[in-house]
Design a protein around this nucleic acid. Sequence first.
DNA 1: ATCCTCCCCTAC
DNA 2: TAAGGTAGGGGAGGAT
Length: 866
Amino acid sequence: MSMDSSRSANSTLQNSKRSFNSNSSSSNSYSKKKKSNQKTLGMAWGANSLSSSRSSFRSSPFSDFGSYMIEKNRKLQNQFDAEASNSSQADSSKKPIFHGVSIFVDGFTVPSSQELRQYMLNYGGRFENYFSRHRVTHIICSNLPDSKIKNRRSFSGGLPVVKPTWVLDSVAGNRLLSWVPYQLEQFANNQPTLSAFFTPKSNPADEGAFTNAICEVKLETDGPSASNSEESQKVKVVELSNLDEDDKSIENNGLQPCPEQPSVSVSSHCFDNHSIKGSPRSIAIGPLKPQNSTLGDPNFVENYFKNSRLHFIGTWKNRYRKRFPCLSNGGMTSHSDVLAGTQKTSIIHIDMDCFFVSVVIRSHPELYDKPVAVCHSDNPKGTAEISSANYPARDYGIRAGMFVRDAKALCPQLIILPYNFEAYEEVADQFYNILHKHCKRVQAVSCDEAFLDVTDLEGKDPQLLASAIRKEICKATGCTASAGIAENMLMARLATRTAKPNGQCYIHPERVDEYLDQLQIKALPGIGHVLEEKLKNKNVRTCGQLRMISKDSLQKDFGIKTGEMLWNYSRGVDNRLVGMIQESKSVGAEVNWGVRFRDLQDTQHFLLDLCKEVSLRLQGCGVQGRTFTLKIKRRRKDAGEPVKYMGCGDCENLSHSTTVPLATDDVEVLQRITKQLFGFFHIDVKDIRGVGLQVSRLESANTARQVLERNSMKSWLTSASASSKERLDINSIAKERVGKDSEVKSMAGNLKSFHFTPVENSVHGTNNTSNGEGCSNQISSVPLLCHLDMGVVESLPSELLSELNEIYGGKLVDLIAKSKGQSENNTGYLCFLPPEPSKVAVEQAEISCNSNPFSLSGTAVEMKAK
DNA sequence: ATCCTCCCCTAC
DNA sequence: TAAGGTAGGGGAGGAT
Ligand SMILES: Nc1ccn([C@H]2C[C@H](O)[C@@H](COP(=O)(O)OP(=O)(O)OP(=O)(O)O)O2)c(=O)n1
Ligand SMILES: [Mg+2]
Ligand SMILES: [Mg+2]
């Protein structure tokens, strides 16, 4: 079991997909203010779900352990409650300095391996892609100086945690984190809980001391599904046996009671469990259709994007491109002239302070010193995510990406305000107008953040300039910005972190080493939690330590580029140039929230909406694409309902792509390609938790049209006078596809974008459509069967062949058989059909017949009669 | 060597 | 309730 667990956890560790990092503890210490009414000194996570594992160990001979555990837990619970009330009395007379940081753990396999344990130690943020399924996690307490901790204990489900590991971790600035990893035991009502105590060393009256500080946090796990309970018992057994052996020693030390905050653990419990309460043994999901999902809302995609903050910031750059088209490409790509000279470069990085919050509270000065966050929901039990928190709120440990219920737990008086995307857009415009006014070389990073290359502005002191710009921004927008000034983009960016909030910071080139030496590697842009962890395993935590590793070694471990980046950044070296904005390389849309399908029809409807969306975006950008990638998030086998309401939970990420010969932005073509890509997944639609469509190999729409006209179907495929070069093209394209499963279908799917012209030999007549642009006229024709070049036909990939065969009513197969002189050759290509031949074949036939009966045949058409 | 696909990682 | 998107960089490993 433990082997299995750790292996799977390790692999998920590698598979991490998404991370919402809070701006982890920047080095600035904005506020040393005490929070007068922060009562909670401790944290306890309560998780509600049973879990399952992939282990083949299914039957449980230990079924009576359940009641045993429950009894034991109750007893301990009561003890704990008694003492908890005492300590809370003591607390109320103190000025607590502890600010908790909430951690979300979606559950993960029981971590018996050292590696996994290590991995857990230092993570804040969301883990669900790392640790699936089970319920081991840790507690993090910030601003809890280890020097003041006399004693630490942790409890799981009212029992002492098995072999807890306590780690002291210092973070940039003067902040200390105490990490409390633990193994969590589930207990009564499927509500595993975890608590940790910190007993102070110093005199409680001391400034900064804490009394019986208790971290109270909630453990998040993917919810239970009744079908999991069998396996979960196995987990119980394993942990229980461990517990037994640890129990005595800990009990000898004397137990402390473990206070539960019912509101906390109950909340997550209600959320995840309600659906299975009625029928604990049945497959979970009830008939209820959540209103806000693909099931409840036929207009889901549109509504979803309208409300998604990540969609807003993710699409902002394209809007910026449109608004300032002259700045977005070409012209100002670099300033190698300056580099060539001896002049020292001078870069300013500027970033709005807690942007989303600043914008919505600018007309409410009374809120400036109150903790405020922007979030869709104010529900203190909810799983809505904090988008941005102002600096007073950050003192409580509140961070972007955190669930609102955890933010509220950290700071009950936290004020939640709704989004105002229009206002963000406006302020961003003002922001960039001001930047462009002061500097020609502006590289937009995001709606609230940009680099300026002010090297050329020799007359001006960069620091004064930054100050002037910040002032102007503040005056124009009512929001503050911070700036970093340095010799390169890297250092300027780091300087901004130091400067925040509402400040600026210049890092002199000579002080770079000094600045970096103690800096945590996580602070370097490009080092996220995965790289951080890998480096930590090598005992590297600061840039100074990172510098001790040779470039060769780094490149060997992390790859050529990444290794070089690490080597350079740890030395403050950054050769990027401001203003190098290339034309976009890909356009896509994805939805990983609220995605639930009952049947294929739901799915197809959603895919169509997605295609429409992507098509519009392509047209909006004036590009067309040739490579299409469909991404699917599939619920892991043993993952229950996600912790996050309507979330995707713990998923495998799958993708298939295909490349077509001619770029397109046509929604019908997209739809067809998408349908075919979808067929590759062979997935139960009920397991789909997320879908995305991405288009790459982009060409300007204008260019694409020219190509289209030049390579009309006629000249390409059927004209007797077609040049050998053109014919070579199509041949090589066809050949390219041979044997490449994932590309095969694209040929069929893309052909609508070809320019068809009537051919004298056309069999089925013509299909002439015009979209009014003159360039996309489509006149299709299918050549007579006897005109096909069998050599080319046979070289076609199987799927294409089968689709083509549909168009010819199945006669193509016969023809091939004849041409090969083989009687039994049908099987030869039938075996290439996708694993679900019936479905796929039907669908493809539909496509061919309904949308453009001749689109496919066009390819084959050019295969002239031999 | 260079490309391609299928991912993973990162940042906002 | 709640809206976990988007795009670029890059690595592993296979095909050519
Ligand atoms: N996980 C995240 C990160 C950011 N944002 C949004 C809200 C932020 O206001 C905006 C800008 O991101 P920043 O990283 O610049 O964060 P802030 O501006 O909020 O704070 P800071 O003062 O640290 O820049 O992007 C978000 O919605 N979710
Ligand atoms: Mg900002
Ligand atoms: Mg920013």
